[in-house]
Every structure is written in C-alpha cells, then in structure tokens.
C-alpha cells in the first residue's frame, strides 16, 4: 500500500538529533515487525488465548522510553509487547512467552498479557483493566519511601480511564507527591466502544484536574512530540513535584485482540491514519529529508529488524515447553 510521506513542517516541533531519529525508527520498526509476526503466528495457532497488538501506537512507548533513565519503572496493561521490546528485553524471550515456551520471559507461564522483567523494572503485563494504575503508583511510592531518584511510568487506555481505582490512585499520588507519570494511551476505542460513547468528557488530560495534577494532550503519532512532552513530565515527577498526566492521542490499526471483527469503526478511518499519520513513515520521511539516511540504508535497518524478528520466531517455535514440574513452582516464595 502506498504511503504518503508525512514530514510536514509544523512550527515548535522539537527536532531530534540524527541518532535519535534513527533510534526511534529502529525501535518502532522492531515493534511493528514483531507484532505483525505475532499476528501471523496467532493465526497459525502457535500463540493462544488473547493477543493484543500494538501496531499504530509505536511512537508512544518509544518516545517515552527515550526520555527515561536506567532504574525508572514501567507498567502497563495487556497490550504490552512493544513496551518490553523498547525497554531492551530480548525479542526471543518476548516471542517465546507468546508461544508459551520455557524460554519466555515468564517461563511460558504468563503469556501475552503477563510478562515482566525485574531486571529492567518492567512490571507487566496486567490483564485487569485499570489495575496497573494503583500498582504503578505503588512503584512510585516505593521510590519516594526509599529516597530513590526513579520515576514510575504507568500506562493505561482510554477505556481504563473510567475505572474508579484510577482516581483513587490519582488522589493519593498528588496527596503524597509521588514520582509517577500517568500515560493515557487514547487510541479512541476500548474494544468496540469509542471514547465518545463511554466518557462524559473526552479530554482525558484533564482527568487529574480536580486533584491538581497537571496534564497535557500530546500527538502520540509523532515521536518528537512524545519525547518532548515526556521529558517535561518525567522531570516534573523526578524533581519532587508529584504526578503528571500525558494523554497520548494515538490509534491502533488492528482489532482490539485477534478475535475482534472491528465493525465499530470504518475502514476509511483506519486507512486514513495509516496513510497520513503513521508514526514510522513520519520518521522515515524525515530521515531521508534531513539526509540522515537513504532508502538503501533504511532498507538495511529493515533487513536487520526482520532478521531479529525471524530469529525470535524461530526460537519461540523451537524452544521447548516448560517442564511439567513448573506447574507447581512459583506459587509462593519459599521462606
């Protein structure tokens, strides 16, 4: 499908360095190709259960993660593959978790919705809509309690923004000035329900207003704007000023999960986003325009990314299932 380059000159958009543009391109492309492969593998029955793809939303987690420092914690819902890839987790381990193999990040015991990494301070991978918001607030509480300089990033969807526990968490976060940034990934739909049909007010960046939490809406399809807003929000939280809300206006191209016929939105809407707002095409166009790369050099990156994804898929299909004895491990910590 022909895609229009989307490098439009808009004033006040921060410019990324060459290294940043290339990093963003590579990260987002890795997510895109990984998710496409996961979708294919689901179709082949290699991945079971629910599988929620991040395609279309790549700029959000990429831009935010570029603004973090080592030690910052991240937590999200079930649409979590991209977060782990960008945080530097091994694509083989992510894919093997999707196929339920012993080499998966949760030894195959968690699946697509439940992946974690202590080492990278990624706390999931949560299947219950909204639950990650108090949990992410708790990660910030621990940082403050221990006098650490780290920030917690808690991602949730436009649909999750209607869960009561979100507001209970907001109140405590502000009350106790906790170093947490709430990232609302507003992709316009919660399963088949558009934000307009579920939310009395649709500017979600204002959802912290009654608690005094600052918030802003960000074009989540433009990694430059995501990065810039994240730097501001994270700095706010890290410097002790308390929580901050970023509403990322984004879009998921695929169905909610693999079994979603997506009858609730028009084909045109999806096509339009893909053709005009695609986060990867935007970076690509800028890289060429700013002469940070050529069609050929980008193709080389593409080939490299495909190789990583294929390697992950091969690993995830050849790696053995967990030992039967794993059924009985990891239930409680041996005291």
């Amino acid at each position: 499908m022909a895609r229009k380059p989307a490098a439009v000159a808009v004033p006040n958009i921060p410019e990324l360095t060459e290294a940043q543009e290339l990093q963003a391109y590579r990260s987002m492309l890795l997510i895109r190709r990984f998710e496409e492969k996961a979708g294919q593998m689901y179709g082949m029955g290699l991945i079971g259960g629910f599988c929620h793809l991040y395609i279309g939303q790549e700029a959000v987690v990429t831009g935010i993660t570029m603004a973090t420092i080592e030690g910052d914690a991240q937590i999200t819902g079930y649409r979590d593959h991209g977060h782990m890839l960008v945080m530097g987790l091994d694509p083989k381990g992510v894919m093997a978790e999707l196929t339920g193999r012993s080499g998966g990040l949760s030894k195959g015991k968690g699946g697509s919705m439940h992946m974690f990494s202590n080492e990278h301070r990624f706390y999931g991978g949560n299947g219950i809509v909204g639950a990650q918001v108090p949990l992410g607030t708790g990660l910030a509480f621990a940082a403050k309690y221990r006098g650490e300089n780290t920030v917690s990033l808690a991602y949730f969807g436009d649909g999750a923004a209607n869960q009561g526990q979100v507001y209970e968490a907001f109140n405590m976060a502000k009350l106790w000035s906790l170093p947490v940034v709430y990232i609302i990934e507003n992709n316009k739909y919660a399963m088949g329900t558009s934000i307009e049909r579920a939310s009395a007010t649709t500017d979600l960046s204002l959802r912290g207003a009654s608690f005094g939490i600052p918030g802003e809406q960000v074009d989540g399809m433009d990694v430059r704007l995501v990065l810039e807003a994240s730097e501001r929000a994270i700095e706010h939280a890290r410097s002790g000023k308390g929580p901050y809300i970023l509403e990322m206006l984004t879009y998921r191209y695929r169905g909610h999960s693999m079994s979603d016929p997506a009858k609730y939105r028009s084909k045109d809407e999806v096509t339009k986003y893909r053709a005009e707002r695609d986060p990867i095409e935007q970076v690509k166009a800028r890289i060429i325009e700013r002469q940070f790369g050529t069609e050929e050099s980008l193709k080389a990156i593409e080939a490299e990314v495909r190789a990583i994804v294929n390697e992950a898929a091969d690993f995830a299909t050849s790696n053995p299932e967990p030992e039967a004895s794993e059924l009985w491990t990891d239930i409680t910590v041996a005291a």
Binding site: G48, G49, E97, G100, R101, S102, S106, K107, G108, K109, G110, G111, S112, H114, E321, P322, A324, E326, L327, W328, I331
Partner: peptide, 16 residues
C-alpha cells in the same frame, strides 16, 4: 483443578 494459578503454556494448562 490443580491448586495453582492457571498457567499459560499449553502443556501446563492441560495439566492444571
């Protein structure tokens, strides 16, 4: 069912 949280892996789920 076995006295464990439900695992995702196909073989373990069967066992559970």
């Amino acid at each position: 069912g076995k006295d464990v949280p439900m695992p995702y892996a196909a073989n373990l789920e069967k066992l559970a």
